[in-house]
Nucleic acid binder design. Structure first.
Length: 283
DNA sequence: ATGGTGACCTGGAGGC
DNA sequence: TGCCTCCAGGTCACCA
């Protein structure tokens, strides 16, 4: 599942292989892939023709291709989205949703997405940071040079909910998904359902530092795994699997204390944690 | 305003 | 073999 590190790998690939190129023609093969573009496929394709890609940028799990005139193609990979750079004429992928051809006749960009949770949209860039308008409300991610850890801790503690819910709330801190939330909580020795009002400053700081650390390690592990034709990760948690300490490891021993990792239902999905290292209880 | 729930979507896994 | 159910989970519409 693409969380921040995976999306950053994709962004770097797009920067290397797409930035500086002029779009010739865009083809939408599945309307759901651009459902967040309110004006529809015709508007989307018409306005992109002739546009130049200035850069590939990212905040949290969102990435965007910056165009001239303060516009951008905003992308979210959802659960299964991929950005592929393929030679023109290469066989279409089964779940190819959008094709972008370039004026230079070089490799084309393909948005492939089996489960169609992801999508593309054309958006205006707004504010000092030139963020796409639809995501102007999300928080900075921990990789952002301007990320303010103290402010992020305050934001987490201002909520009245379970710690993991707060970690997954992209308006507080962006980029953290289910996998890295569980990993960060394990590293910080905090239980996923700890009430945020009982979270101390030190604990808040610890879990954010852990999240930053684990995502940086994952990024490092993934930074070598794409080449010119495949600007992506594999859609699973992929190359970083081996380094996960709790996620998906139900009944296997905790790497710290040997206790069996437990899985609990959480928001129609799962939370994995060590019942010994990560106590629910009091501070 | 805030917090919590279910829908969206497809394919792989596992039960019978 | 084949049918069925469950599961994965990021985001958003919707509800209280």
């Amino acid at each position: 599942m693409p969380e921040l590190p995976e999306v950053e790998v994709v962004r770097a690939g797009l920067q290397a292989h797409v930035a500086g190129r002029v779009i010739a023609r865009v083809e939408v093969l599945h309307p759901r892939a651009i459902r967040r573009h309110a004006l529809g496929p015709e508007d989307f394709t018409a306005r992109l023709a002739g546009a130049r890609v200035e850069a590939a940028r990212r905040r949290g799990k969102y990435l965007w291709l910056e165009l001239s005139d303060k516009e951008a193609v905003l992308a979210h990979l959802g659960m299964s989205g991929q950005m592929l750079v393929q030679p023109e004429g290469a066989p279409d992928e089964k779940h190819l949703r959008v094709r972008v051809r370039f004026a230079d006749g070089g490799p084309e960009l393909r948005f492939v997405d089996q489960r169609t949770f992801g999508g593309l949209a054309l958006a205006d860039l707004t504010g000092e940071d030139l963020l796409p308008a639809p995501i102007a409300h999300i928080g900075r991610d921990p990789m952002d040079p301007a990320f303010d850890p103290a402010a992020a801790v305050r934001a987490l503690r201002s909520r009245r909910t379970e710690l993991k819910r707060a970690l997954l709330d992209q308006t507080l801190v962006s980029g953290v998904g289910n996998i890295y939330a569980d990993e960060a909580l394990w590293r910080a020795k905090l239980h996923w359902s700890r009430p945020t009002e009982k979270l101390t400053n030190a604990q808040g700081r610890a879990v954010l530092e852990a999240a930053t650390e684990v995502m940086a390690e994952a990024l490092k592990a993934g930074g070598t795994s794409f080449d010119a034709l495949y600007v992506n990760v594999n859609g699973q948690s992929g190359y970083f699997d081996r380094s996960l300490n709790v996620y998906g490891r139900q009944d296997r021993p905790c790497g710290r204390c040997g206790t069996a990792i437990r899985r609990e239902p959480f928001m129609n999905r799962s939370s994995y944690f060590c019942p010994r290292c990560q106590r629910r209880g009091r501070t």
